[in-house]
Design a protein around this nucleic acid. Structure first.
Length: 746
DNA sequence: GTAGGGTTAG
């Protein structure tokens, strides 16, 4: 009876109701739990359906010692990607006295590879030696695979070299592993060796090679391998195509992408989810947004992978609003969005100035039960830094600690950046010091942090330590370093680093480096040299370069160069009101009474419509300054008349007539709410007021400021009788008694 | 009953 049932049992199709029927039948004839094999088979079937609780109950009933039920359950756990429980069960199997056999050990090794856990993998290796089964080809193949996944390439090589009978599976594992670790030459060499030793590659070997090349950042090799594979008559399946498309995306080659797209259509592969995701991604990375959307719409797939590729593609092609719209639509359609979907959308927001939205999405994500991972955190943290949302930044820090991802180099670097931008330079350094691995981004984040806080000496010390640690500086490192030197007035050091970056590191000076140098020379009063440097630039100077010159001209009141810089600047950034303000201030400082008319003419010629109030208020202040200087000036009545007209016009346009007036209102109304114009950017800048010693940041909400933000800051500083730190776009300014420590004009 | 290849987020 039992034998007959077992016969039937092994032929059962793997459906859950039939498994349950068989269970009932076995119970009826009293087989379960007294006969080992049928019970074990039943257990295996339950495990297959991931009914692990049922399987575990049966495991307790197995009467005679038999490792098979354990193996079956461990196998099922691994298939269900429950790797840690699988290893835990393996461990209890050993403690019950069952020796590891050649069937269960490869499965346990697969779990180690998937985690990955090198220490457990090594224990399993010793176990196979102790048990005397270390010659088993399955165990050795699994060991090779495990060591490769754990990045222990030398160990994998050792096991591989000692093997006598290498199957195609073993070769494939080793070849794929070499390719994945970027050992292009070795992988190809092995491929040859395998063939000469008489082992033919079936499809998987080729794919392993190709996937490995793609993952290790060798897109050209990936495409070449695909071509060779095709010419040798192997079928290009979905695995091959999706990996090659990913490589094409890295190469940004529309031509190859379109060819593969043609093949995909012919082979009917576009319905495959991996292929479609890779296709959408590759059009997105090549900047072909229209094609990307068309492919996505044509297939009409609701696969989450291609949805994610679409969100990312829209986001990276400056279509952040469309990306957000797509995300919301997918959610409304009931598509099961995963951690990649949420992370891409958070990244889309934090990279496109939608910082509040990024924070809100992160909250929603957790409410939706999607667990953020080591990629989500570095996508979220820039948003925290941008708006100095220290509390949210700290909670992301705590989250990383709980999740055990604090050692991730991206997480660490993003935390350094966030703390620095929130005014917490000491906390940034503490994170930096505890990081186990650092890359150039980590060093840059810390150096930029010091530069932002005006700590030039610390920035230079860290730069020297970076070089001692054999970390090669890049273009970004020098931008921070030069900016720090410029702020601190370390002219000679700055000049030396400007030469070093080009001569020692063969970095081509970018427009940002020039802007720092212009600022550096300008601050030292070497305005003509700064202007010469601009004229000698190999790249076209942008608004930052001319802006640096204009600001320096303000410090040293040089009208001649200021007008040259301003003319260029007004052409490049006609709507940036701050530039007009700077020039008008230089006129004022020089006591040029015709300054008002000059400014009005310039603005009229430039067709400035946006934010005229900013400049007008500044012009008005200038006139005030002039009047204060010489009350008996013959043009006084004329100026007063102009002033009156300006006031009326400003009121008509909805601008507040006087900044002083607004600031006086603050005390009675609401200190947290100052209104004097329109400028979102400055609102953010003033939203970042902090106290000097790093005590909690005080965020002034709803602050809307016009060109007089400087006056407002001075006012707040005086008004509250204390020092404040204000973060401009990329640096902190320290105010005391209405003066700024950096020496800039405010 | 055991071993090798898949895309999308920093």
């Amino acid at each position: 009876m039992t034998a007959a049932l077992q016969f039937l049992f092994q032929r059962l199709p793997p459906s859950l109701p039939q498994t349950q029927q068989a269970h009932a039948a076995l119970l009826k004839c009293g087989t379960v739990p007294f006969d080992t094999r049928p019970t074990a088979n039943l257990l295996a079937l339950y495990a297959h359906h991931i009914r692990l609780a049922d399987a575990a109950v049966l495991l307790r009933f197995i009467p005679r010692p038999d490792p098979f039920p354990f193996s079956a359950l461990i196998s099922a756990l691994v298939s269900a990607r429950l790797f840690s429980p699988a290893l835990a069960l393996f461990s209890s199997m050993l403690s019950l006295g069952f020796p590891p056999d050649p069937f269960v050990l490869p499965v346990a090794l697969k779990a180690c590879a998937a985690l990955p856990s090198l220490p457990i993998g090594r224990q399993l290796h010793s176990l196979s030696l102790v048990a005397g089964i270390s010659a088993d080809p399955f165990i050795n193949s699994a060991l090779v695979h495990m060591y490769l996944k754990c990045r222990a390439v030398a160990d994998a090589q050792l096991v591989f070299d000692r093997m006598t009978d290498k199957s195609v599976v073993t070769w494939s594992a080793m070849i794929a592993g070499c390719a994945t670790h970027g050992r292009v030459g070795e992988a190809l060499q092995m491929f040859k060796q395998m063939r000469t030793s008489g082992v033919q590659p079936n499809q998987i070997t080729w794919n392993g090679l190709l996937v490995g090349f793609n993952r290790s950042g060798h897109p050209q090799e990936t495409v070449l391998t695909m071509r060779r594979m095709h010419s040798e008559g192997f079928e290009m399946d979905e695995v091959c195509i999706s990996s090659t498309l990913s490589a094409v995306a890295d190469m940004e080659s529309v031509a190859i992408g379109s060819q593969i797209h043609g093949y995909v259509i012919k082979a009917g592969l576009e319905v495959n989810s991996s292929v479609l995701s890779a296709l959408v991604d590759s059009y997105g990375k090549c900047g072909r947004t229209e094609e990307m959307v068309r492919v996505f719409d044509e297939v009409g797939s609701v696969d989450v992978g291609s949805c994610n590729a679409l969100i990312a593609g829209l986001s990276r092609n400056s279509r952040a609003d469309d990306a957000l719209k797509a995300f919301k639509e997918f959610k409304a359609q009931g598509i099961e969005l995963n951690v990649v979907s949420w992370t891409s959308t958070v990244a889309c927001c934090s990279q496109n100035g939608k910082d509040m939205e990024a924070l809100e999405l992160f909250r929603e994500m957790q409410a939706a039960g999607v667990d953020p991972n080591a990629v989500t955190i570095p996508c979220l943290l820039p948003a925290c830094g941008n708006i100095a949302a220290l509390m949210q930044g700290k909670s992301a820090h705590c989250f990383s600690l709980r999740k055990g991802i604090l050692m991730d180099v991206y997480v660490g670097s993003a935390l350094v950046d966030m703390y620095a931008k929130c005014g917490r330079i000491k906390d940034a350094r503490a994170i930096f010091d505890t990081m186990k691995t650092r890359n150039v981004v980590s060093w840059n984040a810390m150096i930029a942090g010091y530069a932002m806080h005006g700590k030039a000496k610390d920035a230079i010390d860290l730069f020297l330590s970076m070089k001692r640690n054999m970390q090669k500086p890049d273009s970004i490192t020098f931008i921070s370093l030069l900016s720090a030197c410029s702020q601190a007035g370390l002219t000679e050091e700055g000049e030396r680093y400007f030469i070093e970056l080009q001569q020692e590191h063969s970095i081509i000076a970018r427009v940002e480096h020039y802007a720092c140098m212009v600022s550096l020379l300008g601050r030292a009063g070497r305005l003509n040299e700064a202007y010469d440097l601009i004229r000698k630039m190999q790249v076209e100077p942008d608004g930052c370069v001319w802006g640096a010159l204009l600001s320096s001209c303000r410090v040293h009141n040089n009208v001649r160069l200021a007008e040259i810089a301003a003319e260029k600047l007004f052409q490049l950034e006609p709507e940036n009101a701050g530039n007009y303000v700077l020039l008008s201030n230089i006129y004022a400082a020089k006591g040029m009474l015709d300054g008002v008319d000059r400014m009005r003419d310039i603005m009229k010629n430039m067709g400035v419509k946006k934010e005229p109030g900013c400049s007008w208020i500044e012009i008005k202040n200038m006139v005030h300054m002039l009047l204060a200087g010489d009350k008996s000036h013959p043009q006084m009545s004329q100026i007063a008349e102009k002033l009156e007209k300006l006031s009326v016009e400003m009121k008509r346009l909805g601008y507040h007539p006087s900044t002083d007036f607004v600031l006086q209102d603050v005390e009675e109304q609401d200190k947290e709410h100052i209104l004097c114009g329109h400028s979102e950017k400055l609102a953010v800048a003033l939203g970042l007021i902090s106290t000097p010693s790093g005590t909690p940041l005080r965020v002034i909400k709803n602050l809307r400021i016009c060109g007089d933000c400087h006056a407002a800051i001075k006012f707040i500083s005086n008004f509250e009788g204390r020092e404040i730190h204000v973060r401009d776009t990329n640096r902190f300014h320290h105010f005391k008694d209405g003066h700024c420590s950096c020496g800039d004009y405010w």
